[in-house]
Simulated scan of single mutants.
Amino acid sequence: MLLDFSEKTVLITGGSRGIGKACAMLFASLNADVIITYNKNLDDAERTITQLPHRGNHALYQLDQSKPKCVQRFFDKFLDHYPQLDVLVNNAGIYLEHKIEEIEFDEWQHTWQDTINTNLNGVANLCYFASRQMMHQGGGKIINISSRGAFRGEPNHPAYAASKAGLNAMSQSLAVSLAPSNISVHIIAPGFVETDMTASILNADEGEEIKKQSPFNRVAATDEVARLAAVYASEGFEFTSGGIIDINGASYLRT
């Protein structure tokens, strides 16, 4: 199967590093016009844009997706320059530790609000504007990056697990409502992935134990997630809409 995204526009949130960067690099190598968003790390975003293969109409935008008005303004600017959106990869998210036995209530509340606003509400708003454009143009693909934590729980990051569980339910609801408009919604649920966000954990003493959770004795590489996103984004995979695919190296099995 030869993947080719020529004349396709792919929007990747959190595309400056980690899974998002791997997706940006892969889609660009497959001839897509790639747009990435970043929140605070402008240096990484600019570096990623300059590294993208294929001299397409690539771009980067600053976006704080936790704020609804920012999402709306972003899409107004985006659609001024790109009249078509073929693929949205919702990758951006935050992973904040908040141990219930240690944290003060004010910080507990703040962490929950930030996490849900970014990982769930922000993604919902991105899906809203993207799907409205995709309805207008006759179809498209939405790929939402979830997590193994939505199923097995995250005792030190409960808001993160809750946000991803909500993301799964939202994505499946949208898969049903958007199918008549030829829009498919796909969910990828990785376990631990070797990224900047997880580096402090994987490089600590617990890192070896995390790797041993998988019989492969490692965590996923960002490229492995990116390749799956590219497959789902290609033509011929519309009937996988609403499905949740695990990519955790058999570290957590569910039926």
Rank of each mutant, 00 (worst) to 15 (best):
H54N: 14
A28H: 02
H54Y: 13
T50F: 10
R17M: 10
I19N: 05
E46L: 13
L52F: 04
R17P: 00
H54G: 00
Y38T: 05
E46P: 04
A32F: 04
G18R: 07
D43H: 13
K21G: 00
F27S: 00
C23R: 05
I35N: 01
D33I: 08
N41E: 11
K40W: 11
L26A: 01
N31P: 06
K21C: 03
S29Y: 01
R55G: 00
I35F: 05
S29M: 03
E46W: 11
T48F: 04
A28V: 01
L30R: 10
N31G: 04
V34R: 02
I36N: 01
I19L: 10
I35W: 00
L42T: 10
I19K: 03
I49K: 12
F27M: 09
I49E: 13
L30K: 12
K40F: 12
R17N: 14
F27W: 04
I35H: 04
A45W: 07
N31C: 09
A45D: 02
G56C: 07
A32Y: 07
A28K: 00
F27H: 06
N31Q: 15
R17Q: 14
I36V: 13
T50G: 11
T37R: 09
G18D: 10
G56P: 02
I36G: 02
G18C: 11
A28G: 03
V34N: 05
T50R: 13
T48C: 15
T50H: 12
R17A: 15
R55C: 00
F27Q: 10
G56N: 11
N39Q: 14
R17T: 13
Q51S: 15
G56M: 04
Y38W: 08
I19W: 06
S16K: 12
K40T: 14
A45F: 09
L30A: 10
T37M: 07
V34M: 11
E46S: 12
A22R: 03
N39V: 12
F27K: 03
D44M: 15
V34Q: 05
L52C: 07
N39A: 13
A32I: 10
T37P: 07
D44E: 15
F27C: 04
A22Y: 01
V34P: 00
S16C: 10
I36E: 00
L52N: 05
L52Q: 02
G56T: 02
P53E: 04
A22S: 12
A28I: 01
D33V: 03
A28T: 01
P53A: 10
N31K: 14
K21D: 05
I49D: 00
A28L: 01
D44F: 14
I19S: 03
L42R: 15
S29P: 06
L26V: 08
Q51N: 15
A45C: 11
L52A: 07
H54Q: 06
K40A: 12
D44Y: 13
A24W: 01
